[in-house]
Structure formats: structure tokens, C-alpha cells
Simulated assay, not measured.
Amino acid sequence: MNSPVRSVLVQATSTHDHPEAPPAANSRTFDRAFEDLKKAWQHRELWGHLGWQDIKQRYRRSVIGPLWITISMGTTALALGLLYSQLFGEEISTFLPYVTVGFIVWGFILGCVNEGTDVFISNEGLIKHLPAPITVHVLRLVWRQTLFFVHNLVVYFVVLAIFFSTLGHPYMMNNDPEVKPGVGWEILLAIPGFALLAINGIWIALLFGIVSTRFRDIPPVVHSFINLVFFMTPIVWHAGVLNKVSGGDGGWRVLIAELNPVYHYLEIVRAPLLGHVVDWHHWAIVGGMTVVGWAVALVALRNWRARVSYWV
């Protein structure tokens, strides 16, 4: 283990010379919850190193290493893009980039949700032997998923190079904006979009992790339900299909997409990468869910932070 990470471990251990006693009543405060988040950020060298080691360990002794992440994503997006473009009668030049970018963003969301339910259970050894803030394990997970996302962006740049002239075709449910080829300044909006997505990934993993550690039936339920969410989210189909089947006005079918929060999370990253302008209501909904989600997660962190080490 390199010296910077070792120093973090020594520092964390030195501040906890004795095993944590059963949580006292005054430990259930928001001050303690925010302190946990603050200390976890101060240990960013620790979770940053561990997250990178997770990827290296997964592809240890592999010839091409983490490139398998990119290959797996590329082949899946290509296969489903070709299949569903034929089923829906869509142009492959516009539909394949749509599916590819959707899969890349979905992969990040899926990782935060699925692995978030096991984030504390799978780190039982570290939690019991390394008295660090529990949020460290959540940040490690989100950092690892961010590295996966960056690897998968290689597929996006390949698609961008091939289909650049056809990007910008709108897949909107309401008024279609003016079509222009390629991507422009709007691609920069993908940066704050992904940052907001990562911030949401933290509270999702934190909340699901705490609840799942206490109630072990939650992870299999979430893993099963997330498959249904995938098919209900415009990933291998676009929201414009709802207009076609409703005669142009969308009707009640619009609710299939609009009431699905994952759709809005997808759009704030996918739309800029495809050369689309993100409708303001996507930002508003994601912003509102960020506030509500973090409020609930902080309540869970305040009430049960000290119990996690006993539940695992």
C-alpha cells in the first residue's frame, strides 16, 4: 500500500483507539451526520485509491484490462441499437447514438443503485476494522462508477466520430426544436449534468445502503425492480414514440416517461451529448429530487449512522 493511503489509515485508526461503543442518544444529531460527510471528503485519498484498486483488481491478469468495460458497453449498445432500430423503423444513424449514450448513463445509475444496496454489507471487514466514516464507502462506490463512466465514454466518442453529421435529430415529446447537424456548445451542459447525477448517486447509495444493511430483503427487491425500470425508461426506445402511438398529442402515455424520475436524470446528460437542448423541466425535476433525496438520506445518516457497524 502506498504511503499516502497508509497515512490516511493511520490517521483514521489513531482517532478511534477503542471500539465504538453502542451509540449514545447525542450521536443522533445532524451535526454528527454532517461531520461524517466532512471527514469522508477529507479521506478522499483513501476512497480514491480504493476505487481505482477495485477496477485494477477486477481485471487483474487480463490482457487488455479495463478496456473490457468499453468493449462490453460497445457491443451491448451496438446489438440493441441495431435490433430496436429495425423493430421501431428508426434510422440507425440517429437511433444508435441515442441508445449508446442512454446505455452509458444508465450504466452509471444502475451501478449506484445496485451496488448501493450492498455498499456496507460488502465492506463488512473494512467497517469493523477501519473506524472511518461510513460515507467513505459510498464515495468509493460513486468514484468507481465514475471511472466506469469515463471508460465508456470511449464508445461515445467513436459514435460521435462516425455519426457526427446526423446528431442533433430531436427525440422530443412536445415541440421539436430546430434540427442542426452535429453538436455545439450545449455539449458542455453534460458536465454539470453528470456532476448533478453523481451527487444524486451519493445519496441514493447512502440511503439504500443503510436501509439494506438493516433489512436484508431490500437488495433482491431493488435488483428485481430495477429491471422493470429499465424497460419503462426511454433507453432502447425514445419518448417521441409516445406521440406516434397517440396521434401526435402524447395523451396519458406521456406519463410513462414524465413520471419516471430516471428519464429526467438521463436527459440532463444524454441530451447535451447528442446535440439536443435540455428542456428546463428536466433540470427542475432533478434539482427538486436532489434536495428531497438528500434530506431523506441525511435523516437516515443521523439516525442510524452509528448502527451500521453492528448491523453488518
Rank of each mutant, 00 (worst) to 15 (best):
120 F>T: 03
29 T>I: 05
225 F>A: 15
82 L>P: 02
56 K>I: 10
198 A>Y: 13
118 D>C: 02
185 W>F: 12
122 S>G: 07
194 F>A: 05
14 S>D: 15
73 M>I: 10
149 F>E: 07
188 L>A: 12
28 R>Q: 13
119 V>G: 08
182 G>C: 04
272 P>G: 02
203 W>F: 15
23 P>L: 08
98 Y>E: 09
31 D>R: 14
31 D>M: 09
257 A>Q: 06
261 P>T: 02
148 F>P: 08
296 V>T: 11
311 W>C: 08
222 V>A: 08
196 L>R: 04
100 T>A: 13
159 V>L: 09
203 W>Q: 10
244 K>D: 07
219 P>D: 07
204 I>A: 12
272 P>V: 07
266 L>F: 01
165 S>H: 14
161 A>E: 05
308 V>Q: 02
192 P>I: 04
305 R>L: 08
53 Q>K: 14
134 I>R: 13
111 G>Y: 00
275 G>A: 05
58 R>E: 09
84 Y>L: 14
277 V>W: 01
293 G>E: 00
245 V>T: 04
162 I>L: 10
56 K>M: 09
167 L>H: 02
312 V>L: 03
219 P>L: 09
108 F>L: 15
105 V>K: 09
100 T>E: 03
4 P>V: 10
116 G>K: 00
312 V>C: 03
263 Y>E: 07
249 D>N: 14
238 H>S: 15
42 Q>V: 15
209 G>C: 09
30 F>Y: 12
230 F>P: 00
84 Y>A: 11
283 W>T: 02
55 I>H: 05
101 V>P: 03
309 S>M: 12
23 P>A: 15
76 T>W: 04
190 A>Q: 03
268 I>N: 00
78 L>D: 00
8 V>Q: 12
118 D>A: 09
266 L>S: 02
51 G>R: 06
